[in-house]
Simulated assay, not measured.
Amino acid sequence: MSINWTGVFPAVTTKFTANDELDFNAFNINLEAQLEAGVDGIILCGSLGEASVLTEEEKLDLLSHTLKEVNGRVPVLLNIGESTTKKAVDVAIKAKQLGADGLMLLPPLRYYSDVEETLAFFSAVAESTDLPIMIYNNPVDYKIEVTLDMFEYLARYSNIQAVKESTRDISNITRMINRFGDRFKIFTGVDPIAMECLVMGADGWVAGLVDAFPKETVAIFRLVKQNRIAEALTIYRWFLPVLELDIKPKLVQYIKLAEVATGIGTEAVRAPRLAIKGAERESVLKIINDALAVRPQLPEGSWGI
């Protein structure tokens, strides 16, 4: 499957049982809610998917399971976040063998590679596969920025096709478009500035709170792209306090709590993460419940398959 790089691509959470095993039943409930809302792709094993605490076997099992459940309805991408080039290449090859439609690719983890090292890392993965690749550019959390000059170099690889733009600098979207036109499709990756990025020309949204609120997320995207800005803005203003949970250190726990509140998820996380409690829990629940109390009615045709 070639990827049409546009729309809402949820970075889905990974579900766990009480015995700390993959919970495919709970995962399926959320996955179907995403597809019913009309999302355009699925991204597995990102930061929100707790990739850092998953074994390789679990990641590949989750990929195989998702591909079977989705059954070609939308592209399924596997995130690659590895510490070594050798391992990143190995995961890319295995993802291709299992039938993944594409990859999202982080710079090397743990070691803060310089420009030459980062480009060599990306190049090695791109040369190892023909799968379409989205580069994940998030210097805020991962400390390595993929600059415009670096994208100039990466443009030689036809399968490097998109970027998850998470620099939190909205003007970077304009810089990318001015320099590269539509060579790289741009996805906003920061929920609380998503609408602003879409208005500035982003092609899509790698979303987090979509895991709990898929219909609202899809509606904002579609309304913006239909130039129905006022309608999108009404939903976005309602959504913003919840979207801001996406940029907190405990975003996984917070978003999973929101999934429980909307009936399409579970709260279980894998240690060292722990479920939130006490005043912190009450504070997050208040944000979620305040939003649910005034959940807006969505314009007809703004979501759904």
Rank of each mutant, 00 (worst) to 15 (best):
S302M: 08
T188L: 01
I220M: 10
D211C: 15
A219F: 07
G181N: 13
N137E: 07
K215V: 05
E69R: 14
I173W: 08
P108M: 02
V146W: 05
N71F: 06
T129S: 05
P299C: 08
I235Q: 11
E216S: 13
E231T: 04
R273C: 00
E145D: 15
E117R: 00
T167L: 06
N19S: 14
Y157W: 12
Q97W: 00
Y136N: 09
V218F: 04
K87G: 02
V210D: 01
W5V: 02
R110L: 14
L31H: 10
I305V: 12
N289I: 01
L223Q: 07
K248G: 03
E196K: 11
L78G: 04
A219V: 09
K86I: 14
L233R: 15
V91Q: 10
L148Q: 08
G301D: 01
T85P: 02
F187K: 04
A207C: 14
A100Y: 14
A232L: 04
I29R: 15
E216A: 12
Y236H: 13
S158D: 15
L298H: 00
I247H: 01
N28C: 01
Q226R: 07
G201R: 13
A268V: 11
S113H: 07
V115Q: 13
S52N: 09
F180Y: 14
M150R: 07
E116A: 14
A279P: 00
G72V: 07
Y254R: 04
S64Q: 15
R222Y: 03
K86L: 14
P108K: 02
A126Y: 07
E116I: 07
I133L: 12
D90Q: 13
N172W: 13
F151M: 14
W238D: 10
V284P: 00
V242F: 10
I276Q: 03
D149R: 02
E244Y: 05
V199M: 12
S128R: 10
S47T: 15
G38Q: 06
V76P: 05
A120W: 01
I80A: 09
S171E: 11
V269N: 06
F122D: 09
A88P: 12
L198K: 04
R222W: 02
V146I: 15
T55W: 08
T167R: 08
R179F: 10
R270T: 02
I80H: 12
V89F: 00
M104T: 10
L62W: 04
I177Y: 11
E50Q: 14
E165T: 08
P132S: 10
T234Y: 03
P107H: 09
K225I: 09
F24A: 07
L77F: 15
L131V: 09
I288G: 02
W5K: 09
G304D: 07
P108A: 02
D203A: 14
I144E: 06
A232W: 00
H65Q: 03
L223W: 03
D290Q: 09
E244R: 13
E280D: 12
G208L: 11
L98G: 05
N138R: 05
D101M: 03
A258D: 09
F122A: 11
I133P: 11
